[in-house]
């Protein structure tokens, strides 16, 4: 049935945008947690942990996000399991994003000068205390702008899950475009919705960066 593009379609797009936001939030939280662990492994003095982290990061950063989505979506089929679309999409994006979060935070932690570690160890702080009270508070400042910047990428990457049929705002746009035959108008709406989500984050990222640079 061909129908005119109207208010129903906009509401449908917005409900898709809701799923985009939910998927983005899950990805940021899950990817952030795994990414933090991988970042710690990456700077660990244990060669094994360091090596695993490096290989993990390099492999994922050399793989298209779409391939990660395909492998996670079709992979469990080996064990006869079929993952529903949302968990599959979320898992794929969590794995993909964790490698990038790991590199961002690894860089931030290593930007804290080595004497800070030495000084805090001279104060008999344990490794965890050094990290928690001395290193991280300084690293967070450095990491904030790229972290928020990468969150924009996370939101945009969720669009790829529409290719395996997860109904986010991109997939909703495709469906409406097929029903109304007004692709230009529909995709402009889709693009505008992404822009409204992403642009404020880009601006915030830049503001934080400027603020911290001035103080330094």
């Amino acid at each position: 049935m061909i129908h005119q593009f109207g208010i129903h379609d906009i509401l449908y797009l917005l409900s898709g945008a809701g799923w985009t936001l939910i998927l983005s939030a899950v990805t940021m939280i899950g990817g952030g947690m795994i990414g933090f662990c991988v970042a710690l492994m990456r700077i660990s003095s244990s060669h094994v942990l360091h090596g695993i982290a490096v290989v993990y990061i390099e492999l994922i950063q050399s793989t298209p996000v779409l391939m990660v989505v395909f492998l996670v979506y079709f992979g469990p089929g080996i064990f006869g399991i079929e993952l529903p679309k949302f968990p599959a999409a979320a898992l794929a994006l969590v794995v993909y994003s964790s490698a990038f979060f790991a590199e961002i935070w690894r860089g931030a932690i290593q930007s804290v000068p080595r004497p800070q570690w030495e000084a805090s160890s001279a104060l008999a702080l344990t490794w965890l205390q050094q990290l928690r009270y001395v290193i991280l508070p300084q690293a967070v400042r450095v990491s904030l702008p790229p972290t928020v910047g990468f969150m924009v990428q996370v939101v945009k990457n969720t669009s790829v899950t529409s290719i395996v049929g997860f109904v986010d705002v991109s997939r909703a746009g495709q469906l409406i475009s097929n029903a109304t035959f007004q692709p230009f108008r529909v995709y402009l709406w889709v693009a505008a919705i992404y822009f409204v989500i992403c642009y404020p984050m880009s601006v915030i990222s830049r503001r934080i960066e400027r603020k911290f640079n001035v103080r330094r």
Partner: peptide, 23 residues
């Protein structure tokens, strides 16, 4: 720069391939 960097490549491809022929 801002429009391109704050929208997904997927949507840009859709706009170019399906959208522009409509105009």
């Amino acid at each position: 720069v801002e429009v391109i960097r704050n929208t997904p490549l997927l949507v840009q491809v859709f706009l170019l391939f399906f959208g522009l022929p409509a105009v």
